[in-house]
Design a protein around this nucleic acid. Sequence first.
DNA 1: ATCAAAAATATGTACAAACATAAAAATATA
DNA 2: TATATTTTTATGTTTGTACATATTTTTGAT
Lengths: 244, 244
Amino acid sequence: MKLSIDHKSAVPLHIQAETLLREMIKEPEYQAGKLLPNEVDLAKILAISRTTLRQAINKLVYEELLVRKKRLGTKVAQSKMSSKSMNWLSFTQEMQARGIPIKNYELHVSWVYPDDYIANFFDIKTEKKIMKLERLRGNADEAFVYFVSYFHPRIGLTGDEDFKKPLYEMLENEHSVVANLSKEEISARAADKLIAGKLEIDPGSPVLFRKRFVFDQGDRPMEYNLGYYKAESFIYTVESRRNS
Amino acid sequence: MKLSIDHKSAVPLHIQAETLLREMIKEPEYQAGKLLPNEVDLAKILAISRTTLRQAINKLVYEELLVRKKRLGTKVAQSKMSSKSMNWLSFTQEMQARGIPIKNYELHVSWVYPDDYIANFFDIKTEKKIMKLERLRGNADEAFVYFVSYFHPRIGLTGDEDFKKPLYEMLENEHSVVANLSKEEISARAADKLIAGKLEIDPGSPVLFRKRFVFDQGDRPMEYNLGYYKAESFIYTVESRRNS
DNA sequence: ATCAAAAATATGTACAAACATAAAAATATA
DNA sequence: TATATTTTTATGTTTGTACATATTTTTGAT
């Protein structure tokens, strides 16, 4: 882990400072209400202006990772709303962690024109095709989840990648794209004909539906993922702590 | 509504600018992807520096009310109703935050013997009755969620409390119990006869089912809550950042 | 007419400088 | 000793300035 800032890098200084602060507050010495060095000093240490440093701090303050107090200083907030387990494990990794061997029932790559919704999320034009990945997965006995993923063209996927490997690992190793932030929307749905067919359930019966918006290091959109989970086969767990 | 900024006010200029922008984008002419005046001009109009204006804009950008685009300008984002802080708002508070009046369709208190599962969670014997609270709630038009809550006897609920008030507020004020940690399990389910009847849907149709284990200040179990949400009426959002 | 280069225009990044303000700590006063 | 008062120290506010950069628009060359 680097403790300093590279003034020659193309990465903006306030972004570098931001990631550096994120690393910093993960360290044991900064956990639990400890104070950061004051802004003036820290700016001097990092060799950036106070304004630039504040820009970085502000972001973490907004995310409620840091709390500012006049005269007292800036302290690390109580860790909050940590959505446990599930979130940063890919499906493959999670199943492996539970000792369940995965079976890919279907794996299909295609190139499609994004609809308005997707184009808007990716901030691209609807006239250019993007990669669509459909996967039907489960254990040895049955398929219990159907995934549909769309990827930002920036990543440069060819379609020849090995999608049997853990997806995010592959993206990181082969395309240098790291998933950093995900926003998910979970709801219950009735399975339509397509989904019912894939999961071998009756149309109209319940599925857990998850939309997932994935962002990379620079908080740029990188993947849009739809997951249809057979009911009963999947439970989403969230653990959150009050932060007042 | 004032359209200008008061330089003599004690309220910081960037705060004034922020509220002004919030008002602004509520106006019909600025709805739906319309562009704001560019920063340099707007700063001139408001007679504040571009830096100060940017401070205000930044905040709304963080909140995803505005979207910036190089060369294009700053436009009003599609309103998303993303309840980010969903987690620590009670149902009542959350609905109120969205300006939706709540209606209690049913509210029923009873005293029951806990089953093994609940007794185990509360770490109590099954021979002693505990309070059970059933609530069918929704907006003016329809009931869309059915809650069943069980409370730890330690809290000392009598059953005569006013359960129309926000629950956690009431528990804090009248029984000095503060909810501090919650563990939730979200899944999709087919509605059984009871639930279907309450929510006025067909048996077998999907509901979002949420188990919630709530702990107090000392991480002692205080409430066990089951929520059955009519599908489509409820979306659970989770935002998570990688921390490794 | 088509395609490439240049100009224009918006936000993005970064610094320096100054003064305001809240709260704790140190000091002075009763 | 207890209570005001002042000082100190951190963040908070605000401006001015300069150049970078992504995109569109305009212009120019083939």
